[in-house]
């Protein structure tokens, strides 16, 4: 696939993620995907904007909400669907499911279901990168809720103290499950991170993959130069429920207004010509991946005790 400009390329990648998750929504009621899914629909622009400026060997650590980052970092569609199906051909041989996607071959490292738990792992990988002079920039992606965990603070401190090559990337969707940020936090996320002496930037237009890409590109360049850690907070909006495939604007904890405002800016909903141009290739890739997952074997009993210690 060739693209006329970066906007089109990022658009394609974001659309690919959205269509993949929409396919998950279609398949889910059949119970062929028996894995808790945390969808990124509405948040894809961040994943593609962050991953585009990265090199393959730059490790990125994510959370349970990682379909978007897995794909944006270069993880294979087949590997992801097979993993969601629990098949032996999945990226982790069917032992990981949706919440622990990984693709180390493209630098997509651990993703964990325990909030904030991969943040120090990313910092440690950055310590190794610095020590071994690998030239890698490590990225840790986490939600606004994760910034409430103690280990997040510990990790910021260590990264700043040792000037490690790590980008802290906060996807602020304003929610932790159903709790809104203002009910949970007495601090400003960027203001707080800045107290460690880390250069912070805020992107309010989290739908705008080009803007995210530019911001992250500059930050990554600075980090690679040896300027130490950087911090970027991207505002974003989660369209679906926290976990699962449904919509939940009717249950009373959040109003519809912000959803509509966000959707009015969402490129994937407002550029039908690009959608029309890109959809067929994307559909083919997803069809192929689903077919692959369906026809793949289950892991055998010999896998039960393989790779324990």
């Amino acid at each position: 696939m060739t693209f006329a400009n970066p906007h089109e390329q990022l658009f394609y990648e974001a659309l690919r993620i959205r269509r993949a998750e929409e396919r998950i929504i279609e398949i889910y009621p059949t119970d062929r995907i028996q894995s808790p899914v945390h969808l990124s629909i509405g948040q894809e622009a961040i994943a593609v904007g962050v991953c585009h400026p990265l090199r393959i060997e730059d490790p990125l650590f994510g959370s349970y909400r990682s379909h978007a980052f897995f794909l944006a970092k270069g993880g294979s569609m087949r590997s992801m669907f097979a993993e969601l199906y629990g098949k032996a051909t999945g990226g982790s041989g069917g032992k990981a499911g949706s919440m622990h996607l990984t693709a180390p071959e493209v630098g997509f490292m651990g993703s964990s279901a325990v909030v904030a738990s991969t943040i120090p792992n990313a910092v440690g990988a950055a310590l190794a990168a610095q020590r071994r002079e690998t030239g890698q920039v490590v990225v840790t992606v986490f939600g606004d809720g994760a910034t409430e965990e103690g280990v997040y603070h510990e990790s910021l401190n260590f990264a700043a103290l040792h000037q490690l090559p790590v980008l802290f990337l906060c996807e602020n969707n304003g929610l932790a499950v159903h709790s809104k940020l203002s009910d949970r936090q007495a601090y400003g996320i960027c203001e707080h991170a800045a107290t460690y002496g880390i250069t912070t930037q805020r992107c309010r237009e989290g739908w705008d993959f080009v803007r995210v890409n530019d911001l992250v590109g500059q930050a990554v360049e600075a980090i690679r130069r040896g300027d130490g850690p950087r911090f970027i907070e991207c505002r974003t909006y989660r369209y679906q429920e926290h976990v699962g495939i449904g919509c939940d604007h009717d249950v009373g904890y959040r109003p519809r207004g912000p959803l509509e405002a966000w959707q009015a800016n969402d490129p994937l909903l407002n550029e039908p010509a690009l959608v029309e141009a890109f959809d067929p290739a994307i559909r083919d890739e997803i069809d192929d991946a689903v077919q692959f997952a369906e026809s793949s074997p289950w892991p055998g009993p010999e896998q039960l005790l393989a790779d324990v210690a």
Binding site: G124, A126, L127, V138, G150, V151, E154
Partner: peptide, 26 residues
């Protein structure tokens, strides 16, 4: 000091940092 590092009083992150360092070759 790079090989023998004093650690902040932060047991969880220090362990997590050790894990990440191990994942990346140390």
């Amino acid at each position: 000091a790079g090989r023998v590092m004093d650690s902040p009083l932060a047991e969880e992150s220090m362990t997590g940092i050790g894990i990440g360092a191990a994942l990346n070759g140390l």
